[in-house]
């Protein structure tokens, strides 16, 4: 296998979830390569498997890889636990970040930075680092003492996700519908945060989105269209413009791909 530095390679990935009727295949052979510094957008209709791909990369136990491989710098991610993947450089900005009552944002950020960096950051520089990163995302400093995602608005949750990405400096960041539920101001701030991470050139970004709106703020070099668990089209930024005009109809209408209408699509899309 050939691997450049900081490359996420996904080959022939098949992923199933358990349902009451038995296992159901969501991803049906996904191939994708994301290199350091590149920004890729994965676009597709609801239920196409975009979020399943993100959870499979992060290692959520609900998603079972039945075939294929995911490697980061040649290392087998599928053999690693969720936390080991994060320490190896994978970051998932979640679509629905989870509330963790009583665990303060500051405590959480420091715990995760300590884990990912392999040592506790020096307190003095750390405080400054966090304050700067929060200011960049226009986050109120008082936020640090709140419980993780506890009572956060949709925009606050997404800004908190991007804050973590900025601090953890992952090799590969998967942004799962980070644009959903944001008003224009929040979208601008969040996109600015993503752009800042991108500008450092140390992170490969996989931007998963249903809408083209965020692509006005973050310009991907590569656009992939996913339907029915496969990547069915690939191109440059011009592909996003085509999707903006015509939607996904030409990919799903009349094709076998349209057969995927998952019950509980919210859980897998």
């Amino acid at each position: 296998m050939t691997t450049a530095v900081s490359t996420l390679e996904i080959r022939n990935l098949h992923v199933s979830v358990e349902t009451e009727e038995g296992p159901r295949e969501i991803l049906r052979g996904v191939d994708l390569t994301v290199r350091k510094g590149e920004t890729h957008a994965i676009m597709g209709p609801n239920g196409s498997g975009k979020s399943t791909l993100s959870y499979a990369i992060a290692g959520h136990p609900k998603y079972i890889v039945t075939d294929g491989s995911i490697t980061l710098d040649g290392e087998d991610l599928l053999a690693m636990s969720v936390d080991a993947r994060a320490r190896a450089g994978v970051f998932l900005a979640m679509q629905y970040p989870v509330e963790i009552p009583g665990v303060s944002v500051s405590n959480f950020l420091r715990s995760s930075a300590t884990a990912v960096r392999g040592e506790a950051p020096k307190l003095r520089t750390w405080v400054k680092e966090v304050k700067t990163a929060m200011a960049d995302l226009e986050i109120d400093p008082a936020f640090a003492e709140r419980g993780v995602n506890e009572g956060f608005s949709g925009g606050e949750k997404k800004r908190h996700e991007v804050l973590q990405m900025a601090l953890l400096k992952p090799k590969i960041a998967v942004l799962d519908e980070t644009d959903s539920g944001l008003d224009v101001d929040a979208l601008r701030i969040v996109s600015g945060g993503v752009e800042a991470v991108r500008a450092r050139g140390e992170t490969g970004i996989l931007l998963i989105t249903h809408y083209t709106r965020i692509l006005r703020y973050i310009k991907p070099e590569f656009v992939h269209v996913m339907t029915a668990g496969r990547i069915v089209d690939e191109g440059g930024p011009e592909l996003a413009a085509v999707l903006e005009d015509g939607g996904y109809d030409r990919y799903v209408k009349g094709g076998a791909a349209a057969a995927v209408t998952p019950a509980g699509a919210g859980a897998v899309s």
Binding site: A58, H60, S81, D83, A86, M94, I100, F108, S112
Partner: peptide, 12 residues
Amino acid sequence: ALFYLQSRGIPP
């Protein structure tokens, strides 16, 4: 919640 914390590198 545990998945969220672990996805930030924090051991189980």
